[in-house]
Write a protein that binds this DNA or RNA. Structure first.
Lengths: 236, 236
DNA sequence: TGAATAGTGTCTTTCAGACAATATGCC
DNA sequence: GGCATATTGTCTGAAAGACACTATTCA
């Protein structure tokens, strides 16, 4: 099994002189549902922490990169494959998994709730969305990972265009503002928000929305790449 | 050897059903020497990339956390043990190490050049400091790691107090300004810099320097923690 | 008094932040 | 006309950024 750890004749390099830890990927999947920021958790069907809620994730395979592994897990849990995905932090404390040494590379994914088709995964007896403001107790050190992810998310909302990955390709400024208000759990002055967003010149005007219940808004699209740096002030 | 991967009776959990990658830690060690930003590299004494320069690092041990592993490597290479240390990013592409699957967790360390006593490490035939502006070709994907570290360093200089980890506990504003000028490779207006630093109220005045060659400067010390958030504008 | 470094203040411009009235479309 | 949402501008205060002279110590 371990043979392919010895390649191209490097006999002196004994990677196996060291016991090897297991490497996993854990995902913090964010979406906006019911006017709140939510994340996907799975109820563990196996020990340890059987019946506890946990972040979706799993061990990496030898022939896939960390990111490919994260995308595979994401697809297995949600059926979604086109998302914003970002590596967060690697957690490797010795006792973090009672089964042995497991190092986990955490990722954050942002998906549009319309794209989701939840699947029941083999090792999860249940899968569900939870409001960030109302989370159950989590297995392992997943609470720590989730807290880290929320901080990073807010940070990235202020300093990059990742928010737009949660909107459709055409959106109104009202939708954008509601998104920021949900993530920061804070009301924002409409005039200042619009002034700020329009001043940084990242939007193209599109058509006007049809079939709006009341006055239809102007639609916009993002004319820079998702993840590009911007600076939306002080919303934190 | 692998027995302790099975603990506390979790027979169904077969971590070893998966081949395990190796996990390493690589260090980007920054210091200021000769009025420039420099990083420590080792010349590899073993294949692969024998005789190439590389970041210091090594495989983690089963009984140490990632951070402990980074600190151990740091101490082995430089003799330094009290430093600013921060995890950067985890690189895990399949082909990044010709010996097999090696996932590396990168760390950035900032050390005061006065504290360094370089040691010749067992697996390095040579150890040296290099200016960031004049680097040799690096082994593996270490160039990518280093580029990432430089970006993070600059970023953290603008938004946190990590710069102060490169100064003595008492320092002049001139020393602080020179440090920022070196890291950003850019001249900064003295009056605006001082105004800004003093306005954010993170410094305590100390004594006045003795034995200065010319007019002795006022000394200051940091009255908040290293790593605390601040905002030194727009130096990037 | 010359050399080297330390220390200081003003003006302009830009931007954040507070704040309220009008416009549009649907019923 | 009533309702729900969209859209727009002004004023104030704070801070960034440009800019040049004086102060201190030592040789």
């Amino acid at each position: 099994m371990k043979n392919n750890q010895y390649k191209q004749g490097y006999p002196l390099v004994k990677l196996d002189d060291f016991e090897q830890p297991s490497v996993a990927v854990d995902l913090v999947i964010f979406t906006i549902k019911e006017r709140s920021l939510q994340t996907l958790l799975i109820k563990r069907g196996i020990v340890p922490f059987k019946e506890s809620w946990a972040l979706p994730g799993g061990f990496i395979k030898m022939n896939e990169s960390l990111e490919e592994s994260a995308l595979r897990e994401l697809e297995e849990e949600t059926g979604v494959n086109k998302v914003y995905l970002e590596q967060l932090y690697t957690f490797g404390n010795v006792g973090r998994d009672p089964r042995g040494r497991v190092i986990t590379v955490s990722y954050m994914a942002l998906i549009n709730s319309k794209d989701i088709k939840l699947k029941a995964s083999t090792d999860a007896s249940d899968v569900n969305w939870f409001r960030i403001s109302n989370l159950p107790t989590l297995a392992f050190d997943h609470k720590k990972i989730l807290n880290y992810a929320v901080k990073r998310l807010k940070w990235k909302f202020e300093y990059t265009t990742i928010a737009f990955s949660l909107l459709h390709s055409r959106f109104s400024l009202g939708e954008l503002q509601r998104l920021y208000e949900i993530v920061f759990d804070k009301e924002i002055d409409k005039r200042n928000f619009r002034k700020k967003i329009l001043s940084i010149d990242i939007l193209k005007t599109e058509s006007i929305m049809k079939d709006a219940p009341y006055r239809p808004p102007q639609l916009y699209s993002l004319k820079v790449k998702i993840g590009d740096s911007i600076n939306i002030n002080n919303l934190a």
